[in-house]
Amino acid sequence: MAGLRSWHLFAICVLVWGTTWHAITYQIGHTTPEVGVALRFGLAGLCVLAMCLVRGERLGFALVDHGRLALQGVFMYGVSYICVYQAERHLPSGLVAVGYSASPLLIGLGAQLLFGMRVTGRFVAGGVLGLVGVALMFWPEFGKAAEGTSTALGAVFTVGSVLLSAIGSLTASRNRTSGLPFWPALGWGMVYGALAAAVIALAQGQSFALPSAPSWWISLLYLALAGSVLTFACYLTLQDRIGPGPSGTIGVMTPLLALVVSMLFEAFRPDLLTFAGAALAVAGNALMLRRPA
């Protein structure tokens, strides 16, 4: 990833993650969210660790380092993605993706609180603008909550996934500053996230029987290799370069593509509030990424 420029890394994350939200819908129709997450990140983590072995990278770590990697993996790849999969059972994938517009503000404030990284007023203003945009895009769906609990439950899972993912992202940033090597940390983190999801699935008595549907297998490979290995490698590299807050702005741009995909394949029909919210989210993103004069 070192040979790629920052905007290349940003674009890869937005383009791939913007389509993975829809790819997840092919998983939840055949397996439970917990099993789907366990298989996705188990495959992704093993691929990364196998690559590390070929490259001759060190895979052995002290127990305390494994604790840090487990903390990163459980939050960043495990329980947060279980919430994402659960949310997509109740909401269009594009709207679940929109919830991640809150990520940069949460991560930026968390980095300032925990690591002393300075957050500018412009960054906070852009984050608030993005949140307003999120609220506008969600507003029509929240109106449906009066008819049942499905939409409200989807919103709760979305909020949970954003908060848990922010904790995982901050932990990953701390692990990098602690000197843990990039690729082994990524691989072990994904394996620990998969193990956490598997434990939850087994505790609930869920089956790990593999479906025969080609769409499930294709989506699994896409989610594991492109949507996990490639994108998280790009994201964490970008986080090293520009900091956890600014790199989190990927979470503002990704939903825009996800909404388009949701319109094309999931019969989601936006209204004027959706477009107004999207415009505010883009404006907030630009404000957060704008360099000081």
Rank of each mutant, 00 (worst) to 15 (best):
L257D: 08
W7Q: 13
P140N: 08
G168F: 06
A203V: 09
L164D: 01
L221D: 02
A194D: 02
A155C: 15
W188G: 01
T32R: 07
Q72A: 13
A111F: 05
V191Q: 04
R176K: 08
Y85W: 08
P214N: 11
D240P: 14
T32A: 14
R58V: 03
S247A: 15
L180F: 08
E88Y: 01
G36V: 11
G243A: 10
Y222H: 11
A209W: 01
T149C: 11
A279F: 07
I107S: 04
W17P: 06
L257G: 05
F157R: 05
G168P: 07
G42E: 00
Y100D: 00
A203N: 07
T149G: 13
T25N: 13
A196P: 13
F41G: 01
G277S: 01
V124T: 02
V48Y: 01
R122P: 07
G3H: 12
M117A: 15
R290P: 11
L9A: 07
G56W: 00
W7K: 10
L59P: 00
G251C: 02
P33N: 06
F10D: 01
V37D: 00
G45Y: 02
A279D: 02
G94A: 04
C83Y: 09
H30Q: 10
I28D: 10
S178L: 15
M263S: 10
W183Y: 06
L129P: 06
A226H: 08
P292D: 03
G245Q: 04
I28C: 04
S262R: 05
S150G: 15
A155V: 14
D65A: 10
F138S: 10
C52I: 00
A97M: 08
G245T: 03
L15M: 15
A198K: 04
R55E: 14
A267Y: 12
P33L: 07
D240Q: 09
G3K: 09
A293F: 05
I12K: 08
S165M: 11
L114H: 06
S262L: 10
A11P: 10
A201T: 01
L91Q: 10
G193C: 13
L164C: 13
L109Y: 10
Y81Q: 10
G189Y: 09
Q239Y: 14
Q27E: 12
F142R: 10
L49T: 06
G116E: 02
F157G: 01
V64C: 13
T149V: 12
G121P: 08
W7V: 11
T158A: 06
I218C: 12
S207H: 05
G154R: 00
A197Y: 00
L164P: 07
E88P: 12
A23D: 06
A286H: 14
A203E: 09
S207Y: 04
M253Y: 15
G18Y: 11
P181Y: 01
L170D: 04
A276F: 02
R176W: 05
S173V: 11
L164F: 12
A279W: 01
L69C: 12
L43I: 12
R291T: 14
R118Y: 14
A209S: 04
W183P: 07
P181N: 06
G187S: 03
L114T: 15
